[in-house]
């Protein structure tokens, strides 16, 4: 029942941890081909939103639609196979594997739910070619045959994106892909995210760096203490009183 053009719709989503309302009755949507930014102070509940959408946690309440299909409460692997790719704020590489095989794992996504399809040998020349294409896209093809455990944080973040792209997702969730990167790396990463969107992926991203969020995203959703505080274009958010308060504390001047 989602409106045409919506890739993700979240309705009244909540997730409590005991008494803590990490996400509290949040609603928003991501349109096809859009980059939507999820921002907010530390502990606002952004990562928890990702974890609920991607099935790491079940929602305490609410509905989540991926296009027309309801996906809330499905296990993570089922949501991934329906077309949601994600990265992790605290990177989670398959450390014992080569960089190439990290991406290979993503390539096999359609196979893992079928016994017969997961029997063949992985990594033939066509598989390698495909995996290399994703590494090339994020700019780390030169590291393909090395171990993923020795990569820099910037390259690990790229690897996580390549791995998620290999799922050929309808929606890509990026959790602070820019944090811990140098200025130069941030510029490259912004270029990469723009290219990804241009290729037709819809992106939902969490970002702390306001400058990055403002220049990259078409719309922003602001969370604070688990609740949605505001939603709008970067221009609207920049001047929103409540947002400024949440970031700078009550009584601060309106200079952001």
């Amino acid at each position: 029942m989602a409106e045409k053009g919506m890739i993700l719709r979240v309705e009244g989503m909540s997730r409590y941890f005991g008494g803590l309302k990490a996400v509290d009755d949040v609603s928003f949507h991501v349109s096809r081909g859009e980059i939507l930014g999820l921002i907010g102070p530390n502990g606002a509940g952004k990562t928890t939103c990702f974890n609920v959408i991607s099935g790491v946690y079940r929602p305490t309440a609410g509905k989540i639609f991926l296009e027309e299909e309801r996906i809330d409460g499905l296990p993570a692997h089922a949501i991934a196979s329906r077309g949601v790719g994600r990265t992790f704020q605290i990177v989670r590489p398959f450390a014992g594997m080569t960089v190439l095989n990290n991406v290979m794992v993503g390539l096999g996504m359609q196979r893992y739910s079928s016994f017969l399809k997961s029997c063949p040998v992985f990594g033939d020349s066509q598989d390698r070619e495909e995996a290399m294409a994703f590494l090339r896209e994020v700019g780390i093809e030169g590291l393909a045959d090395g171990s993923s455990s020795v990569l820099s944080l910037g390259n690990l973040r790229r690897l996580e994106i390549a791995r998620a792209l290999a799922l050929r997702p309808r929606l890509l969730l990026l959790d602070e892909s820019f944090s811990g990167l140098s200025e130069e790396e941030i510029q490259q990463m912004m270029e990469l995210v723009r290219n990804i969107r241009e290729r037709g992926f819809s992106v939902l991203l969490i970002e702390h760096n306001m400058r990055v969020a403002m220049s990259l995203c078409h719309r922003l959703v602001v969370l604070d203490h688990g609740k949605k505080l505001a939603e709008g274009s970067p221009g609207e958010i920049r001047t929103d009183e409540r947002v400024i308060e949440a970031y700078l504390g009550r009584g601060a001047s309106a200079h952001a």
Partner: peptide, 14 residues
């Protein structure tokens, strides 16, 4: 084995 949560995000049912 390497990363159960990331594997889940790659469509792998633990």
């Amino acid at each position: 084995r390497e990363e159960e949560t990331a594997a889940g995000a790659m469509g792998i049912s633990h």
